[in-house]
Design a protein around this nucleic acid. Structure first.
Lengths: 260, 260
DNA sequence: TAGTGGTCTAGACCACAAC
DNA sequence: TTGTGGTCTAGACCACTAA
Protein backbone atom coordinates (compact mmCIF):
# COMPACT_ATOMS: atom_id res chain seq x y z
CA UNK A 1 0.00 0.00 0.00
CA UNK A 2 1.34 3.40 -0.88
CA UNK A 3 -0.30 5.35 1.90
CA UNK A 4 1.63 5.48 5.15
CA UNK A 5 -0.23 4.36 8.22
CA UNK A 6 1.46 4.74 11.57
CA UNK A 7 1.63 1.77 13.90
CA UNK A 8 -0.80 1.24 16.78
CA UNK A 9 0.34 3.36 19.72
CA UNK A 10 0.02 1.54 23.03
CA UNK A 11 0.35 4.83 24.90
CA UNK A 12 -2.68 6.13 23.02
CA UNK A 13 -5.74 5.74 25.19
CA UNK A 14 -7.92 4.93 22.20
CA UNK A 15 -8.32 1.23 21.45
CA UNK A 16 -6.33 -0.06 18.46
CA UNK A 17 -9.36 -0.36 16.19
CA UNK A 18 -10.16 3.32 16.68
CA UNK A 19 -6.59 4.29 15.98
CA UNK A 20 -6.68 2.30 12.76
CA UNK A 21 -10.01 3.87 11.80
CA UNK A 22 -8.60 7.33 12.54
CA UNK A 23 -5.54 6.67 10.36
CA UNK A 24 -7.72 5.61 7.44
CA UNK A 25 -10.09 8.53 7.98
CA UNK A 26 -7.12 10.90 7.96
CA UNK A 27 -5.80 9.38 4.73
CA UNK A 28 -9.18 10.02 3.14
CA UNK A 29 -9.36 13.54 4.50
CA UNK A 30 -5.91 14.40 3.17
CA UNK A 31 -6.83 13.06 -0.21
CA UNK A 32 -4.31 10.21 -0.11
CA UNK A 33 -7.38 8.08 -0.66
CA UNK A 34 -9.82 9.73 -3.03
CA UNK A 35 -13.41 8.87 -3.93
CA UNK A 36 -13.56 5.42 -5.46
CA UNK A 37 -10.11 4.42 -4.22
CA UNK A 38 -9.62 1.03 -2.62
CA UNK A 39 -8.66 0.84 1.04
CA UNK A 40 -5.95 -1.57 2.18
CA UNK A 41 -7.47 -5.05 2.39
CA UNK A 42 -8.22 -6.62 5.74
CA UNK A 43 -5.23 -8.92 5.47
CA UNK A 44 -2.97 -5.97 4.65
CA UNK A 45 -4.21 -4.15 7.76
CA UNK A 46 -3.66 -7.30 9.82
CA UNK A 47 -0.06 -7.54 8.58
CA UNK A 48 0.66 -3.84 8.89
CA UNK A 49 -0.73 -3.32 12.37
CA UNK A 50 -0.14 -6.78 13.78
CA UNK A 51 -3.71 -7.19 14.97
CA UNK A 52 -6.33 -9.89 14.57
CA UNK A 53 -8.59 -9.74 11.58
CA UNK A 54 -11.66 -8.89 13.70
CA UNK A 55 -9.85 -5.83 14.97
CA UNK A 56 -9.14 -4.60 11.46
CA UNK A 57 -12.74 -5.34 10.51
CA UNK A 58 -14.03 -3.30 13.41
CA UNK A 59 -12.04 -0.29 12.21
CA UNK A 60 -13.61 -0.65 8.79
CA UNK A 61 -17.02 -1.13 10.41
CA UNK A 62 -16.64 2.31 11.99
CA UNK A 63 -15.95 3.91 8.63
CA UNK A 64 -18.91 2.12 7.06
CA UNK A 65 -21.26 3.35 9.78
CA UNK A 66 -19.99 6.86 9.11
CA UNK A 67 -20.88 6.49 5.47
CA UNK A 68 -17.28 7.17 4.47
CA UNK A 69 -16.65 3.87 2.71
CA UNK A 70 -18.58 1.04 1.13
CA UNK A 71 -17.58 -2.63 1.07
CA UNK A 72 -18.01 -4.71 -2.06
CA UNK A 73 -17.96 -8.40 -1.43
CA UNK A 74 -15.06 -10.04 -3.20
CA UNK A 75 -13.62 -6.74 -4.47
CA UNK A 76 -12.61 -4.60 -1.55
CA UNK A 77 -13.59 -1.59 0.48
CA UNK A 78 -13.82 1.69 -1.38
CA UNK A 79 -14.04 5.35 -0.50
CA UNK A 80 -17.58 6.45 -1.25
CA UNK A 81 -17.88 8.51 -4.39
CA UNK A 82 -18.92 12.08 -3.90
CA UNK A 83 -22.66 12.03 -4.43
CA UNK A 84 -24.17 14.05 -7.21
CA UNK A 85 -26.17 16.66 -5.42
CA UNK A 86 -29.64 17.52 -6.55
CA UNK A 87 -31.38 20.68 -5.55
CA UNK A 88 -35.08 20.89 -5.18
CA UNK A 89 -36.27 24.44 -5.16
CA UNK A 90 -39.41 25.49 -3.37
CA UNK A 91 -40.40 26.47 -6.86
CA UNK A 92 -40.84 22.90 -7.88
CA UNK A 93 -44.61 22.91 -7.50
CA UNK A 94 -45.04 26.07 -9.52
CA UNK A 95 -48.25 26.11 -11.50
CA UNK A 96 -46.46 27.14 -14.66
CA UNK A 97 -44.66 23.79 -14.69
CA UNK A 98 -47.89 21.91 -14.29
CA UNK A 99 -49.33 23.94 -17.12
CA UNK A 100 -46.48 22.70 -19.28
CA UNK A 101 -47.36 19.17 -18.31
CA UNK A 102 -44.40 18.48 -16.04
CA UNK A 103 -44.65 16.73 -12.72
CA UNK A 104 -42.31 17.89 -9.97
CA UNK A 105 -39.93 14.96 -10.00
CA UNK A 106 -39.43 14.91 -13.76
CA UNK A 107 -38.70 18.60 -13.72
CA UNK A 108 -36.06 18.34 -11.01
CA UNK A 109 -34.38 15.32 -12.52
CA UNK A 110 -34.15 16.80 -15.99
CA UNK A 111 -32.83 20.07 -14.59
CA UNK A 112 -29.74 18.30 -13.28
CA UNK A 113 -29.34 16.02 -16.26
CA UNK A 114 -30.85 12.80 -14.99
CA UNK A 115 -33.25 10.57 -16.81
CA UNK A 116 -36.26 10.29 -14.53
CA UNK A 117 -38.27 7.13 -14.09
CA UNK A 118 -41.10 5.67 -12.04
CA UNK A 119 -41.78 2.05 -11.17
CA UNK A 120 -43.64 -0.13 -8.69
CA UNK A 121 -46.71 2.01 -9.17
CA UNK A 122 -49.83 0.92 -7.37
CA UNK A 123 -53.16 2.63 -6.84
CA UNK A 124 -55.48 1.39 -4.10
CA UNK A 125 -58.25 2.62 -1.86
CA UNK A 126 -58.19 2.06 1.88
CA UNK A 127 -59.27 3.59 5.21
CA UNK A 128 -57.13 6.48 6.40
CA UNK A 129 -54.69 5.89 9.24
CA UNK A 130 -54.66 8.35 12.12
CA UNK A 131 -51.58 10.16 10.81
CA UNK A 132 -53.07 10.65 7.37
CA UNK A 133 -56.54 11.45 8.67
CA UNK A 134 -55.15 14.13 10.96
CA UNK A 135 -53.32 15.88 8.17
CA UNK A 136 -56.23 15.62 5.74
CA UNK A 137 -58.80 16.72 8.28
CA UNK A 138 -60.67 13.41 7.94
CA UNK A 139 -61.90 10.89 10.47
CA UNK A 140 -59.80 7.79 11.00
CA UNK A 141 -61.15 5.15 8.64
CA UNK A 142 -62.48 7.54 5.99
CA UNK A 143 -61.65 6.25 2.51
CA UNK A 144 -58.53 7.59 0.82
CA UNK A 145 -56.99 6.78 -2.54
CA UNK A 146 -53.37 5.67 -2.13
CA UNK A 147 -50.83 6.07 -4.90
CA UNK A 148 -47.58 4.29 -4.13
CA UNK A 149 -44.55 4.56 -6.40
CA UNK A 150 -40.77 4.66 -6.56
CA UNK A 151 -38.77 7.26 -8.41
CA UNK A 152 -35.59 6.53 -10.29
CA UNK A 153 -32.77 8.73 -11.54
CA UNK A 154 -30.80 7.14 -14.36
CA UNK A 155 -32.40 3.84 -13.36
CA UNK A 156 -31.26 4.06 -9.73
CA UNK A 157 -33.97 4.25 -7.08
CA UNK A 158 -33.67 7.49 -5.09
CA UNK A 159 -37.09 8.03 -3.53
CA UNK A 160 -40.30 6.30 -2.59
CA UNK A 161 -43.52 8.28 -2.41
CA UNK A 162 -46.99 7.47 -1.15
CA UNK A 163 -49.79 9.94 -1.83
CA UNK A 164 -53.08 9.95 0.04
CA UNK A 165 -56.05 11.77 -1.50
CA UNK A 166 -59.53 11.89 0.03
CA UNK A 167 -61.49 9.30 -1.99
CA UNK A 168 -64.35 11.69 -2.70
CA UNK A 169 -61.93 14.04 -4.46
CA UNK A 170 -60.16 11.35 -6.43
CA UNK A 171 -62.99 9.13 -7.63
CA UNK A 172 -63.92 9.67 -11.23
CA UNK A 173 -60.68 11.47 -12.03
CA UNK A 174 -57.42 10.29 -13.56
CA UNK A 175 -55.99 10.27 -10.04
CA UNK A 176 -57.22 6.69 -9.71
CA UNK A 177 -55.62 5.72 -13.04
CA UNK A 178 -52.06 4.50 -13.42
CA UNK A 179 -51.26 7.48 -15.61
CA UNK A 180 -52.57 10.67 -14.07
CA UNK A 181 -51.83 12.58 -17.25
CA UNK A 182 -49.84 15.77 -17.84
CA UNK A 183 -49.02 17.71 -14.68
CA UNK A 184 -49.82 14.78 -12.40
CA UNK A 185 -52.08 14.65 -9.36
CA UNK A 186 -51.95 18.38 -8.71
CA UNK A 187 -53.06 19.26 -12.24
CA UNK A 188 -56.03 16.86 -11.89
CA UNK A 189 -57.01 18.37 -8.53
CA UNK A 190 -57.00 21.81 -10.11
CA UNK A 191 -59.01 20.47 -13.06
CA UNK A 192 -61.58 19.31 -10.50
CA UNK A 193 -61.83 22.80 -9.11
CA UNK A 194 -59.49 22.59 -6.12
CA UNK A 195 -57.09 25.42 -6.82
CA UNK A 196 -53.92 24.83 -4.85
CA UNK A 197 -53.06 27.47 -2.27
CA UNK A 198 -50.03 26.34 -0.34
CA UNK A 199 -47.96 23.38 0.79
CA UNK A 200 -46.52 22.41 4.14
CA UNK A 201 -43.51 20.11 4.25
CA UNK A 202 -42.26 18.35 7.37
CA UNK A 203 -38.64 17.26 7.00
CA UNK A 204 -36.91 14.72 9.23
CA UNK A 205 -33.88 12.43 8.94
CA UNK A 206 -33.24 8.97 10.35
CA UNK A 207 -31.67 5.63 9.49
CA UNK A 208 -33.72 3.53 7.06
CA UNK A 209 -35.69 0.46 8.04
CA UNK A 210 -34.55 -2.78 6.37
CA UNK A 211 -37.49 -2.45 3.96
CA UNK A 212 -36.44 1.04 2.99
CA UNK A 213 -32.84 -0.04 2.57
CA UNK A 214 -34.03 -2.66 0.12
CA UNK A 215 -36.39 -0.37 -1.78
CA UNK A 216 -33.77 2.33 -2.20
CA UNK A 217 -30.81 -0.06 -2.53
CA UNK A 218 -28.98 1.76 0.22
CA UNK A 219 -25.64 0.62 1.54
CA UNK A 220 -24.94 0.86 5.24
CA UNK A 221 -24.30 4.27 6.69
CA UNK A 222 -26.70 6.16 4.43
CA UNK A 223 -29.58 7.87 6.23
CA UNK A 224 -32.89 8.77 4.66
CA UNK A 225 -34.81 12.01 4.64
CA UNK A 226 -38.49 11.74 5.33
CA UNK A 227 -40.53 14.52 3.76
CA UNK A 228 -44.27 14.63 4.39
CA UNK A 229 -45.99 17.22 2.25
CA UNK A 230 -49.57 18.35 2.73
CA UNK A 231 -51.21 20.26 -0.10
CA UNK A 232 -53.98 22.76 0.67
CA UNK A 233 -56.38 24.40 -1.72
CA UNK A 234 -57.15 28.12 -1.61
CA UNK A 235 -60.00 27.51 0.84
CA UNK A 236 -57.57 25.88 3.30
CA UNK A 237 -58.82 22.35 2.73
CA UNK A 238 -56.11 19.67 2.74
CA UNK A 239 -56.40 17.84 -0.56
CA UNK A 240 -53.37 15.56 -0.55
CA UNK A 241 -50.71 14.16 1.76
CA UNK A 242 -47.54 12.85 0.14
CA UNK A 243 -45.16 10.81 2.30
CA UNK A 244 -41.74 10.49 0.68
CA UNK A 245 -38.57 8.74 1.76
CA UNK A 246 -35.44 9.91 -0.02
CA UNK A 247 -31.92 8.49 -0.08
CA UNK A 248 -30.21 11.30 1.82
CA UNK A 249 -26.98 11.28 -0.17
CA UNK A 250 -28.87 12.10 -3.35
CA UNK A 251 -30.70 15.16 -2.11
CA UNK A 252 -30.31 18.70 -0.94
CA UNK A 253 -33.67 20.33 -0.29
CA UNK A 254 -33.86 24.04 -0.85
CA UNK A 255 -36.47 26.32 0.66
CA UNK A 256 -36.93 30.01 0.11
CA UNK A 257 -39.14 31.95 2.51
CA UNK A 258 -39.73 35.62 3.25
CA UNK A 259 -38.71 37.51 6.38
CA UNK A 260 -42.04 38.59 7.72
CA UNK B 1 -36.69 -13.14 29.27
CA UNK B 2 -40.42 -12.87 28.84
CA UNK B 3 -40.46 -12.15 25.12
CA UNK B 4 -40.50 -15.21 22.92
CA UNK B 5 -37.80 -15.44 20.34
CA UNK B 6 -37.91 -18.31 17.86
CA UNK B 7 -34.80 -20.41 17.34
CA UNK B 8 -32.42 -19.86 14.46
CA UNK B 9 -33.83 -21.56 11.38
CA UNK B 10 -31.17 -23.35 9.35
CA UNK B 11 -33.54 -23.50 6.39
CA UNK B 12 -33.77 -19.73 6.45
CA UNK B 13 -31.36 -18.30 3.92
CA UNK B 14 -30.57 -15.35 6.14
CA UNK B 15 -27.51 -15.76 8.34
CA UNK B 16 -28.23 -16.41 12.03
CA UNK B 17 -27.25 -12.94 13.17
CA UNK B 18 -29.81 -11.39 10.83
CA UNK B 19 -32.49 -13.76 12.02
CA UNK B 20 -31.74 -12.78 15.60
CA UNK B 21 -31.78 -9.09 14.69
CA UNK B 22 -35.10 -9.58 12.89
CA UNK B 23 -36.63 -11.32 15.91
CA UNK B 24 -35.59 -8.46 18.21
CA UNK B 25 -36.78 -5.87 15.70
CA UNK B 26 -40.12 -7.62 15.50
CA UNK B 27 -40.43 -7.69 19.30
CA UNK B 28 -39.87 -3.93 19.32
CA UNK B 29 -42.32 -3.35 16.49
CA UNK B 30 -45.02 -5.36 18.23
CA UNK B 31 -44.49 -3.44 21.41
CA UNK B 32 -43.26 -6.44 23.40
CA UNK B 33 -40.23 -4.26 23.94
CA UNK B 34 -41.18 -0.63 24.42
CA UNK B 35 -39.05 2.52 24.51
CA UNK B 36 -36.54 2.30 27.34
CA UNK B 37 -36.96 -1.46 27.80
CA UNK B 38 -33.88 -3.60 28.17
CA UNK B 39 -33.07 -6.15 25.49
CA UNK B 40 -31.97 -9.66 26.44
CA UNK B 41 -28.30 -9.54 27.43
CA UNK B 42 -25.65 -10.92 25.12
CA UNK B 43 -25.20 -14.00 27.28
CA UNK B 44 -28.96 -14.60 27.28
CA UNK B 45 -28.97 -14.45 23.48
CA UNK B 46 -26.00 -16.82 23.37
CA UNK B 47 -27.84 -19.31 25.60
CA UNK B 48 -31.18 -18.95 23.84
CA UNK B 49 -29.94 -19.23 20.28
CA UNK B 50 -26.92 -21.42 20.87
CA UNK B 51 -24.55 -19.13 19.02
CA UNK B 52 -21.20 -17.56 19.83
CA UNK B 53 -21.16 -14.25 21.58
CA UNK B 54 -19.80 -12.41 18.52
CA UNK B 55 -22.83 -13.59 16.56
CA UNK B 56 -25.22 -12.19 19.15
CA UNK B 57 -23.21 -8.98 19.20
CA UNK B 58 -23.46 -8.63 15.45
CA UNK B 59 -27.24 -8.84 15.66
CA UNK B 60 -27.23 -6.04 18.21
CA UNK B 61 -24.76 -4.10 16.06
CA UNK B 62 -27.36 -4.14 13.27
CA UNK B 63 -30.00 -2.66 15.54
CA UNK B 64 -27.59 0.00 16.79
CA UNK B 65 -26.73 1.05 13.24
CA UNK B 66 -30.44 1.36 12.58
CA UNK B 67 -30.78 3.68 15.51
CA UNK B 68 -33.33 1.35 17.12
CA UNK B 69 -31.39 0.62 20.31
CA UNK B 70 -28.59 2.12 22.37
CA UNK B 71 -26.02 0.21 24.42
CA UNK B 72 -25.02 1.37 27.87
CA UNK B 73 -21.76 -0.05 29.09
CA UNK B 74 -22.27 -2.14 32.19
CA UNK B 75 -26.05 -1.77 32.14
CA UNK B 76 -27.45 -3.33 29.01
CA UNK B 77 -28.92 -2.53 25.62
CA UNK B 78 -32.11 -0.50 25.57
CA UNK B 79 -34.80 0.37 23.07
CA UNK B 80 -34.29 3.99 22.14
CA UNK B 81 -36.81 6.33 23.68
CA UNK B 82 -39.17 7.97 21.27
CA UNK B 83 -37.62 11.36 20.66
CA UNK B 84 -39.55 14.45 21.60
CA UNK B 85 -40.28 16.04 18.30
CA UNK B 86 -39.73 19.72 17.82
CA UNK B 87 -41.26 21.62 15.01
CA UNK B 88 -39.61 24.60 13.51
CA UNK B 89 -42.03 26.64 11.49
CA UNK B 90 -40.93 28.80 8.63
CA UNK B 91 -42.34 31.48 10.85
CA UNK B 92 -39.43 31.23 13.20
CA UNK B 93 -37.64 34.23 11.76
CA UNK B 94 -40.69 36.47 11.87
CA UNK B 95 -39.85 40.06 12.60
CA UNK B 96 -42.47 40.28 15.30
CA UNK B 97 -40.48 37.80 17.36
CA UNK B 98 -37.29 39.80 16.95
CA UNK B 99 -39.20 42.89 18.00
CA UNK B 100 -40.07 41.10 21.18
CA UNK B 101 -36.42 40.35 21.73
CA UNK B 102 -36.53 36.65 21.02
CA UNK B 103 -33.97 34.83 18.96
CA UNK B 104 -35.17 31.97 16.82
CA UNK B 105 -33.80 29.13 18.89
CA UNK B 106 -35.12 30.39 22.21
CA UNK B 107 -38.55 30.82 20.69
CA UNK B 108 -38.70 27.29 19.32
CA UNK B 109 -37.39 25.71 22.48
CA UNK B 110 -39.78 27.52 24.76
CA UNK B 111 -42.69 26.73 22.49
CA UNK B 112 -42.21 23.01 23.13
CA UNK B 113 -41.38 23.40 26.79
CA UNK B 114 -37.61 23.14 26.73
CA UNK B 115 -35.19 25.34 28.57
CA UNK B 116 -32.91 26.76 25.89
CA UNK B 117 -29.20 27.33 26.39
CA UNK B 118 -26.09 28.33 24.48
CA UNK B 119 -22.48 27.44 25.21
CA UNK B 120 -19.08 27.22 23.58
CA UNK B 121 -19.62 30.64 22.09
CA UNK B 122 -16.74 32.11 20.15
CA UNK B 123 -16.50 35.19 17.93
CA UNK B 124 -13.59 35.52 15.52
CA UNK B 125 -12.71 37.19 12.26
CA UNK B 126 -11.17 35.26 9.38
CA UNK B 127 -10.97 35.10 5.58
CA UNK B 128 -14.03 33.61 3.89
CA UNK B 129 -13.77 30.10 2.50
CA UNK B 130 -15.01 29.48 -1.01
CA UNK B 131 -18.31 28.03 0.19
CA UNK B 132 -19.07 30.99 2.41
CA UNK B 133 -17.78 33.55 -0.09
CA UNK B 134 -19.98 32.11 -2.82
CA UNK B 135 -23.11 32.38 -0.73
CA UNK B 136 -22.29 35.86 0.58
CA UNK B 137 -21.30 37.17 -2.84
CA UNK B 138 -17.77 37.92 -1.60
CA UNK B 139 -14.35 37.05 -2.95
CA UNK B 140 -12.54 34.14 -1.34
CA UNK B 141 -10.42 35.58 1.44
CA UNK B 142 -12.59 38.61 2.17
CA UNK B 143 -12.93 39.11 5.91
CA UNK B 144 -15.96 37.66 7.66
CA UNK B 145 -16.98 37.65 11.31
CA UNK B 146 -17.56 34.11 12.53
CA UNK B 147 -19.89 33.36 15.42
CA UNK B 148 -19.64 29.75 16.56
CA UNK B 149 -21.92 28.35 19.26
CA UNK B 150 -23.74 25.26 20.47
CA UNK B 151 -27.40 25.19 21.41
CA UNK B 152 -28.78 23.15 24.27
CA UNK B 153 -32.29 22.00 25.13
CA UNK B 154 -32.68 21.15 28.81
CA UNK B 155 -28.90 21.09 29.02
CA UNK B 156 -28.53 18.54 26.22
CA UNK B 157 -26.66 19.66 23.11
CA UNK B 158 -28.90 19.47 20.05
CA UNK B 159 -27.36 21.77 17.49
CA UNK B 160 -24.16 23.52 16.53
CA UNK B 161 -24.32 26.73 14.52
CA UNK B 162 -21.70 28.82 12.79
CA UNK B 163 -22.68 32.21 11.40
CA UNK B 164 -20.65 34.13 8.85
CA UNK B 165 -21.27 37.87 8.44
CA UNK B 166 -19.34 40.14 6.07
CA UNK B 167 -16.89 41.93 8.36
CA UNK B 168 -17.80 45.38 7.03
CA UNK B 169 -21.39 44.82 8.15
CA UNK B 170 -20.52 43.45 11.56
CA UNK B 171 -17.72 45.71 12.73
CA UNK B 172 -18.80 48.27 15.24
CA UNK B 173 -22.05 46.45 16.04
CA UNK B 174 -22.99 44.06 18.83
CA UNK B 175 -22.59 41.26 16.30
CA UNK B 176 -18.93 41.10 17.30
CA UNK B 177 -19.84 40.97 21.00
CA UNK B 178 -20.54 37.79 22.94
CA UNK B 179 -24.06 38.98 23.63
CA UNK B 180 -25.67 40.32 20.50
CA UNK B 181 -28.56 41.70 22.53
CA UNK B 182 -32.31 41.24 22.15
CA UNK B 183 -33.37 39.68 18.86
CA UNK B 184 -29.87 38.47 18.05
CA UNK B 185 -27.84 38.95 14.89
CA UNK B 186 -30.84 39.63 12.69
CA UNK B 187 -32.11 42.43 14.92
CA UNK B 188 -28.65 44.06 14.83
CA UNK B 189 -28.48 43.80 11.05
CA UNK B 190 -31.84 45.53 10.79
CA UNK B 191 -30.67 48.17 13.29
CA UNK B 192 -27.77 48.81 10.93
CA UNK B 193 -30.20 49.42 8.08
CA UNK B 194 -30.16 46.04 6.38
CA UNK B 195 -33.84 45.15 6.37
CA UNK B 196 -34.20 41.42 5.93
CA UNK B 197 -36.04 40.33 2.82
CA UNK B 198 -35.91 36.54 2.61
CA UNK B 199 -34.04 33.43 3.63
CA UNK B 200 -32.89 30.40 1.68
CA UNK B 201 -32.29 27.15 3.52
CA UNK B 202 -30.45 24.15 2.08
CA UNK B 203 -31.29 20.97 3.96
CA UNK B 204 -29.28 17.75 3.77
CA UNK B 205 -28.80 14.69 5.96
CA UNK B 206 -25.77 12.48 6.55
CA UNK B 207 -23.93 10.59 9.26
CA UNK B 208 -21.95 12.79 11.64
CA UNK B 209 -18.18 13.10 11.64
CA UNK B 210 -16.48 11.97 14.87
CA UNK B 211 -16.13 15.64 15.86
CA UNK B 212 -19.83 16.20 15.39
CA UNK B 213 -20.68 13.06 17.30
CA UNK B 214 -18.68 14.41 20.21
CA UNK B 215 -20.10 17.92 20.05
CA UNK B 216 -23.69 16.70 19.94
CA UNK B 217 -23.13 13.68 22.19
CA UNK B 218 -24.67 11.42 19.59
CA UNK B 219 -24.86 7.67 20.02
CA UNK B 220 -24.27 5.45 17.03
CA UNK B 221 -26.99 5.27 14.43
CA UNK B 222 -28.14 8.86 14.74
CA UNK B 223 -27.72 10.96 11.59
CA UNK B 224 -27.44 14.73 11.51
CA UNK B 225 -29.30 17.29 9.47
CA UNK B 226 -27.21 19.99 7.92
CA UNK B 227 -29.07 23.23 7.37
CA UNK B 228 -27.30 26.12 5.67
CA UNK B 229 -29.32 29.30 5.78
CA UNK B 230 -28.51 32.41 3.80
CA UNK B 231 -30.21 35.65 4.83
CA UNK B 232 -30.82 38.35 2.22
CA UNK B 233 -31.80 41.96 2.78
CA UNK B 234 -34.54 43.63 0.76
CA UNK B 235 -32.01 44.72 -1.88
CA UNK B 236 -31.02 41.12 -2.46
CA UNK B 237 -27.65 41.38 -0.75
CA UNK B 238 -26.64 38.30 1.27
CA UNK B 239 -25.94 39.52 4.80
CA UNK B 240 -25.39 36.29 6.71
CA UNK B 241 -24.74 32.59 6.20
CA UNK B 242 -25.57 30.27 9.08
CA UNK B 243 -24.30 26.69 8.92
CA UNK B 244 -26.06 24.47 11.44
CA UNK B 245 -25.70 20.81 12.28
CA UNK B 246 -28.65 19.34 14.16
CA UNK B 247 -29.07 15.99 15.91
CA UNK B 248 -31.62 14.50 13.53
CA UNK B 249 -33.66 12.69 16.16
CA UNK B 250 -34.45 15.98 17.91
CA UNK B 251 -35.82 17.85 14.91
CA UNK B 252 -38.63 18.01 12.45
CA UNK B 253 -38.28 21.02 10.16
CA UNK B 254 -41.48 22.52 8.88
CA UNK B 255 -41.76 24.69 5.79
CA UNK B 256 -44.82 26.42 4.43
CA UNK B 257 -44.72 27.74 0.88
CA UNK B 258 -47.30 28.97 -1.57
CA UNK B 259 -48.43 27.27 -4.77
CA UNK B 260 -47.43 29.76 -7.39
C1' DT C 1 -7.25 -19.99 -8.79
C1' DA C 2 -6.12 -16.31 -5.72
C1' DG C 3 -7.73 -12.57 -3.20
C1' DT C 4 -11.45 -10.26 -1.18
C1' DG C 5 -15.02 -9.47 2.27
C1' DG C 6 -18.98 -12.16 5.10
C1' DT C 7 -19.89 -15.05 8.83
C1' DC C 8 -18.82 -17.79 12.77
C1' DT C 9 -16.54 -20.11 16.88
C1' DA C 10 -14.66 -20.38 21.62
C1' DG C 11 -12.32 -18.63 24.21
C1' DA C 12 -9.84 -14.16 26.92
C1' DC C 13 -9.31 -9.79 29.73
C1' DC C 14 -11.13 -5.26 30.61
C1' DA C 15 -14.24 -1.25 32.21
C1' DC C 16 -18.40 0.02 33.98
C1' DA C 17 -22.84 -0.26 36.77
C1' DA C 18 -25.50 -1.97 40.36
C1' DC C 19 -26.20 -4.47 44.44
C1' DT D 1 -19.15 -9.34 43.82
C1' DT D 2 -21.88 -10.16 39.85
C1' DG D 3 -23.48 -9.10 35.43
C1' DT D 4 -23.13 -6.10 31.69
C1' DG D 5 -21.15 -4.50 27.35
C1' DG D 6 -16.21 -3.30 25.03
C1' DT D 7 -12.28 -5.12 22.99
C1' DC D 8 -9.30 -8.63 21.30
C1' DT D 9 -7.21 -13.16 19.58
C1' DA D 10 -6.43 -17.00 16.28
C1' DG D 11 -8.20 -19.60 13.99
C1' DA D 12 -12.27 -21.60 10.42
C1' DC D 13 -15.34 -22.02 6.27
C1' DC D 14 -18.09 -19.60 2.87
C1' DA D 15 -19.46 -16.49 -1.22
C1' DC D 16 -18.17 -13.31 -4.43
C1' DT D 17 -14.91 -11.14 -8.00
C1' DA D 18 -11.45 -11.10 -11.20
C1' DA D 19 -7.68 -12.93 -13.62
Amino acid sequence: MTIDLAAVDKADERPPYRQIAAALREAIRRGKLGPGDKLPSESELVDHYGVARMTARQAIQDLKAEGLVVAEHGRGVFVRSVPVVRRLASERFARRHRDRGKAAFSMEAEKVGYTPGVDRLSVTEAPATSEVAERLGLAVGDAVVIRDRRYLANGEPVETAVSYIPADLARGTAIVESDTGPGGIYARLEDAGYTLGHFVEEVAARMPTPDERRALQLSTGVPVMSVVRTAYDTTGRAVEVCDTVKAAHAYVLEYDFPAR
